[in-house]
């Protein structure tokens, strides 16, 4: 017989169609120790209460759909094993974005900040017939920030973002970093100018919540520091 865990799942519920206030749904489920929090949420949704609502897609930490606050920290529900958080598991929506229903938040403010930093490759010179050359060292320079999956774990764990929703936030800075430090890209100066605005990188207080929250283990605080440094040295 496989070993099982008794889990007490506490889920913050809110359906604006019928609830005035958020409430805590409590569910007892029996799961395997290597089942994920996502499996427990699915168990509830599929066999106890079909109204429980969450986003998920790939189920293994690549698509970034199921960011949520699990026992007080931002995680992807598909990357947390129950044995690591049992026996009481508290699940809430990520903070700082409007709740649509239960664990689903409105991602549009987050995506708008992402779009604001020119998160795309810019090089208007006519391209060569083959690939643009880039040394392995130049490629390595921005490798870490190419891993971002836009899950919002970082931005919604940031006290500066909680205090001021207009702050562009760590995820958008990570995306800008990916291009600023790409030797082939030509728009670093424009992105740095955007990030030098009052709601740009300077709102970062180096709290490291973002780095701790990142399910892709991106060294976000370091990336933000590199952008700050680039700004200091590019403005004479």
């Amino acid at each position: 017989m496989a070993e099982t865990l008794k889990i007490e799942l506490r889920i913050k519920r809110f359906n604006p169609e019928k609830d005035e206030e958020p409430w805590w749904g409590e569910y007892e489920v029996e799961m395997g120790p290597t089942d994920r929090v996502l499996d427990a949420l699915h168990y509830v949704k599929w066999h106890i209460d079909g109204t429980l609502t969450l986003r998920r897609s790939c189920g293994h930490g690549i698509c970034g759909s199921d960011a949520m606050r699990i026992n007080g920290v931002n995680r992807l529900a598909c990357k947390v094993l129950l044995r690591d958080v049992a026996p009481v598991v508290t699940v809430e929506p990520i903070l700082g974005l409007p709740v649509i229903k239960d664990l689903v938040v409105d991602m549009e403010p987050f995506m708008a900040q992402y779009r604001s930093v020119m998160p795309y490759f810019v090089n208007d010179e006519p391209p060569p017939p083959r690939e643009r050359l880039q040394s392995p060292e130049e490629r390595e320079r921005f490798d870490d920030t190419t891993k971002c999956i836009l899950c919002a774990c970082c931005t919604t764990s940031c006290p500066s973002f909680w205090a001021r929703g207009e702050y562009v936030g760590p995820a958008a800075i990570v995306q800008a970093h990916r291009f600023i430090f790409d030797s082939r890209d030509k728009a670093a100066a424009q992105r740095l100018e955007i990030l030098n605005e009052p709601d740009g990188v300077w709102r970062c207080r180096t709290v490291y919540n973002c780095t701790n929250a990142c399910p892709r283990e991106i060294k976000i605080t370091e990336a933000i520091a590199e952008v700050k440094k680039a700004l200091l040295f590019s403005r004479l």
């Binding site: 795309y120 490759f121 090089n123 391209p127 017939p129 083959r130 690939e131 643009r132 050359l133 880039q134 040394s135 392995p136 130049e138 490629r139 921005f142 490798d143 190419t146 990916r178 291009f179 790409d182 082939r184 890209d185």
Partner: peptide, 19 residues
């Protein structure tokens, strides 16, 4: 594939800087 590279796709590189 060359078009994807020109769109900025960060392929890994050979020592000569090719894809």
């Amino acid at each position: 594939v060359i078009e994807l590279e020109h769109m900025g796709l960060p392929f890994d590189r050979t020592p000569e800087g090719k894809i």
